[in-house]
């Protein structure tokens, strides 16, 4: 095993990057992602299955749910935060910067939730703004930190997904 930074083996990381550069099949594979969500059969509880992982999505009790897990909009900001952290670790490791602590606090603001409930037509029920505040403890100067962060934000899959308009294709089938 070679040099390890931030728990990542530098040699494996660069061979992964090489592979991504050359191997079209791998790139195709990691360009498609899947999930399945099932209603648990009662109230606002859903189970999600992603590869070998499964987890629960619910609603807080004040919104009539049993609060068995975070809700969908909370998962969205969690996904954004995790995506930024993933990119941050990748970009810091690439530069040989050791991170001691990394944490991100997210706050999303919905435009008009009443549209979801069908009691308003003004605005839209999605997030209009998400603030993502990262806190880093690392032995590096402010300039390097800024570079890592800016690259991370610019190349974030979830960040780009949210900041652009994604085409969503909803399909329905009734099973008899």
């Amino acid at each position: 095993m070679g040099k390890v930074i931030n728990g990542l083996d530098i040699e494996s990381l660069s061979s992964l990057l090489d592979e991504a550069r050359k191997n079209k099949e791998l790139v195709q594979k990691i360009s498609k992602w899947y999930a399945r969500v099932r209603w648990a059969g009662t109230g606002f509880t859903f189970n999600s299955y992603v590869r070998n992982h499964s987890f629960t999505i619910s609603e807080p009790s004040e919104l009539g749910g049993p609060d068995k897990g975070p809700n969908a909009v909370e998962y969205v900001i969690s996904a954004l935060g995790a995506c930024y952290l993933t990119g941050f670790i990748l970009n810091a490791t690439k530069r040989g910067v050791n991170i001691k602590n990394l944490e991100i606090a997210l706050e999303g603001e919905i435009d008009n939730i009443l549209v979801f409930l069908g009691i308003s037509n003004e605005g839209h029920p999605g997030y209009r703004k998400v603030i993502a505040k990262a806190y880093v403890e690392a032995d590096c100067d402010e300039k390097t930190l800024k570079e890592i962060w800016e690259e991370t934000v610019r190349t974030s899959p979830v960040g780009n997904t949210l900041a652009r308009n994604v085409e969503i294709v909803p399909q329905l089938s009734l099973i008899k």
């Binding site: 969908a72 909009v73 969205v76 954004l80 930024y84 602590n101 919905i110 435009d111 939730i113 549209v115 979801f116 409930l117 069908g118 839209h124 029920p125 999605g126 997030y127 209009r128 703004k129 998400v130 603030i131 993502a132 505040k133 990262a134 806190y135 880093v136 403890e137 690392a138 590096c140 402010e142 930190l145 800024k146 962060w149 934000v153 960040g159 997904t161 949210l162 900041a163 652009r164 308009n165 994604v166 085409e167 969503i168 909803p170 329905l172």
Partner: peptide
């Protein structure tokens, strides 16, 4: 289904460009 799609907070978030405010601070 159409009401669910139209009123979806996450669906609307993804279909519209959300303003993201990224901030970073070095903590000692």
């Amino acid at each position: 289904w159409e009401a669910a799609v139209k009123g979806s907070p996450v669906g609307n978030t993804l279909q519209r460009g959300v303003e993201i405010v990224p901030q970073v601070s070095l903590v000692r």
